[in-house]
Computed example of a mutant assay.
Amino acid sequence: MEMPEGVYGLRPIIGITSNISEERLLTTGLSNIQAIVKGGGVPIVLPNLADESSIEQLAASIDGLLVTGGNDADPALYGEEPHPNLGEVCPERDYFETTLIAKFLEKNKPILGICRGCQMINITAGGELFQDIYAQIDKPLLQHTQKAPRSHPSHFVEVKANSLLYEAVQSTRFKVNSFHHQAVKRIADGFEVSALASDGIIEGYESKLHRFVLAVQWHPENLAQKDDEFSLKLFRRFIQACQQGSETI
């Protein structure tokens, strides 16, 4: 696949986090890789390292971080016992991602979080999750684990005007897909909500302290496969931020 030239010259290197399968294989959806390419970046799939010095070197070496979807996060990371409806967790991936996200935040490097990635950024920064929205929220909810193809938008989100997300997608309302049963409950200090579903579930948030840390609960990488305009704009804005360097805060 031929990659488009970056707006500012050399294309930035984007690290993509990965799952660990039962067969001890690293996996990530091709849609994650293809979305970064469409956005103008060079994707690299990251292993789940356990050595902090190696993670530090990795954080210094890549231009941006895409924290992808996957299994549930360990609730011990935000001080809770496991709910009966908690799904499978992967301690190796949890450690790697929280350590790498923390180093990216320190370096003020761009991060885009998707679904689980949205939740992991919040946890790393000190926030909390609903372990299971259907058991822990006492009101009617939308279908957040849709019974439709992954590239099909299923429900609307409302986007806050003047937010980074609005700047990226240039719309205050559009449809997204949905594949989750966990969600952000208490947002971390220094972050603000930028998108909500009609039932009040947080669908997007962003940092007020960093130049580009943006997280969404849906899967724009799957929508980008069908050239969804909002998803393509989101990835292009992320890659643009990655091309502009970093500044330690």
Score class of each variant (00 low, 15 high):
Cys118Trp: 08
Gln119Ala: 02
Gln119His: 06
Met120Ser: 06
Met120Arg: 06
Met120Thr: 13
Met120Glu: 11
Ile121Arg: 11
Ile121Lys: 14
Ile121Asp: 09
Asn122Thr: 05
Asn122His: 06
Asn122Met: 06
Ile123Leu: 15
Ile123Thr: 14
Thr124Glu: 10
Ala125Thr: 02
Ala125Pro: 05
Gly126Thr: 03
Gly126Arg: 01
Gly126Met: 00
Gly127His: 03
Gly127Trp: 01
Gly127Ser: 08
Glu128Arg: 14
Glu128Leu: 09
Leu129Thr: 10
Leu129Asn: 06
Phe130His: 14
Gln131Trp: 07
Gln131Thr: 02
Tyr134Arg: 12
Gln136Asn: 11
Gln136Val: 08
Ile137Thr: 09
Ile137Pro: 08
Ile137His: 10
Asp138Thr: 09
Asp138Asn: 15
Lys139Glu: 11
Lys139Tyr: 11
Lys139Ser: 12
Pro140Asn: 10
Leu141Ile: 12
Gln143Pro: 01
His144Arg: 08
His144Cys: 03
Thr145Pro: 01
Thr145Arg: 15
Thr145Ser: 12
Gln146Thr: 08
Gln146Phe: 13
Gln146Trp: 11
Lys147Met: 15
Lys147Asn: 15
Ala148Val: 13
Ala148Ile: 13
Ala148Lys: 15
Pro149Gly: 13
Pro149Tyr: 14
Pro149Ser: 15
Pro149Met: 14
Arg150Tyr: 14
Arg150Met: 10
Ser151Lys: 14
His152Gln: 15
Pro153Gly: 12
Pro153Ala: 13
His155Gln: 12
His155Cys: 05
His155Asp: 05
Phe156Asp: 11
Phe156Ala: 12
Phe156Trp: 09
Val157Met: 01
Val157Cys: 02
Val157Leu: 01
Val157Asn: 03
Val157Phe: 01
Glu158Met: 08
Glu158Pro: 03
Val159Phe: 05
Val159Lys: 10
Val159Glu: 04
Val159Leu: 03
Val159Met: 05
Lys160Thr: 13
Lys160His: 02
Lys160Arg: 14
Asn162His: 15
Ser163Gly: 13
Ser163Trp: 12
Leu164Phe: 05
Leu164Trp: 04
Leu165Ile: 01
Leu165Lys: 07
Tyr166Val: 01
Tyr166Lys: 06
Tyr166Glu: 07
Tyr166Asp: 04
Tyr166Ile: 00
Tyr166Leu: 02
Glu167His: 13
Ala168Glu: 05
Ala168His: 04
Val169Trp: 07
Val169Glu: 08
Gln170Ile: 01
Ser171Leu: 00
Thr172Tyr: 05
Thr172Ala: 06
Arg173Asp: 04
Phe174Asp: 04
Lys175Phe: 05
Val176Thr: 09
Asn177Ala: 10
Ser178Pro: 10
Ser178His: 12
Ser178Ile: 07
Phe179Cys: 02
His180Arg: 11
Gln182Ser: 09
Gln182Ala: 06
Gln182Phe: 07
Ala183Asn: 09
Val184Met: 06
Val184Ala: 02
Lys185Gly: 08
Arg186Leu: 00
Arg186Ile: 00
Arg186Cys: 00
Arg186Gly: 00
Ile187Ala: 01
Ile187Trp: 00
Asp189Thr: 00
Asp189Asn: 06
Asp189Phe: 00
Phe191Met: 07
Phe191Val: 00
Glu192Ala: 02
Glu192Cys: 02
Val193Asn: 03
Val193Pro: 00
Val193Ala: 06
Val193Gln: 03
Ser194Trp: 04
Ser194Pro: 01
Ser194Cys: 15
Ala195Thr: 04
Ala195Ile: 06
Leu196His: 12
Leu196Gly: 01
Leu196Asn: 09
Ala197Leu: 10
Ala197Gly: 11
Ala197His: 08
Ser198Thr: 10
Asp199Ser: 09
